[in-house]
């Protein structure tokens, strides 16, 4: 009995898109999108700038509405399930001079649960725990403007975690950060993936292959690939031009290629 319900839970579709079509005024951004994301998935949304990655995330949040087609998150229209979603927007949109502390930002994740925006002790505990999860516990009192790019990303992820989400949506979490920081970030996401579904948008495909389970390729159309299938041919299709794939399972030395 118990196993059955667990199995049911495992196969539950977190996100379902059926024949979704979206256009800003007259320019088509997404057409004929069919997509299902299962619980526990770690999906990377890749594609060129302006290909529709952020639009796809905003559709899932109910910030934008499809012109036609059906869209469900946790089996309901997205507006009704927003509370179960933790969202990290692109960090370039933030004013770095804004006078706000790390803790204040993370607590914003609790706003939906407060009356008139007053935070309880429990809210603060959840915020502290979220900061611990992204290894930022010691920086709660720091000013947002004093942080590095990678730290700001992690604060915004902590804010999304503070919503106690079942689905985590991240828009370009790796933009403008160092490769080492990026790797650390993926370690964090990998451990979070044990208890929540993750979808993240990124414009580079190279590195995701390691921890990501499937890749959603977005450039007007949407195609899903398991990570192992991602070949040069597919990437060429997504980007519409000749690009080289970087293989991360591969080391170069002065003598030649180790893995060949």
């Amino acid at each position: 009995m118990r196993n059955n319900s667990l199995l049911e839970k495992m196969n539950q579709h977190v996100v379902v898109l059926k024949d979704v079509f979206f256009a800003y005024n007259s320019s088509t951004v997404l057409e004929n999108v069919n997509l299902t994301i299962k619980e526990g998935e770690f999906a990377s949304i890749v594609g060129p700038n302006g290909g529709g990655k952020s639009t796809l995330l905003k559709l899932l949040l109910g910030l934008l509405h499809p012109n036609s087609g059906e869209l469900q998150v946790f089996g309901k229209p997205p507006e009704k399930t927003r509370r179960r979603i933790g969202y990290m927007p692109q960090h370039a949109q933030f004013d770095v001079q804004f006078p706000v502390t790390v803790m204040e930002i993370v607590l914003m994740g609790r706003l939906g649960y407060t009356l008139g925006g007053r935070y309880s002790k429990k809210d603060r505990l959840i915020a502290e725990r979220s900061l611990e999860e992204v290894n930022m516990a010691g920086l709660a009192k720091r000013s947002f403007s004093d942080l590095s790019g990678g730290q700001r990303q992690r604060v915004l992820i902590a804010r999304a975690l503070c919503c106690e989400p079942d689905l985590l949506l991240l828009d370009e979490p790796t933009a403008n950060i160092d490769p080492e920081v990026e790797e650390a970030l993926f370690e964090i996401l990998k451990s979070l993936n044990k208890r929540m579904t993750i979808m993240l948008a990124t414009h580079d495909v190279g590195f995701v292959s390691q921890s990501v389970k499937s890749v959603i390729c977005v450039n007007r159309c949407v195609v899903v690939h398991p990570t192992s299938e991602l070949s040069g041919e597919i990437i060429k299709d997504i980007y519409g031009g000749e690009v080289c794939m970087i293989r991360h399972d591969h080391r170069c030395s002065a003598e030649g290629h180790e893995n060949d």
């Binding site: 509370r83 927007p89 706000v100 914003m108």
Partner: peptide
């Protein structure tokens, strides 16, 4: 700080 996020939180 982030009007869109505040809106998403209800």
């Amino acid at each position: 700080f982030d009007q869109e996020f505040a809106g998403l939180r209800g």
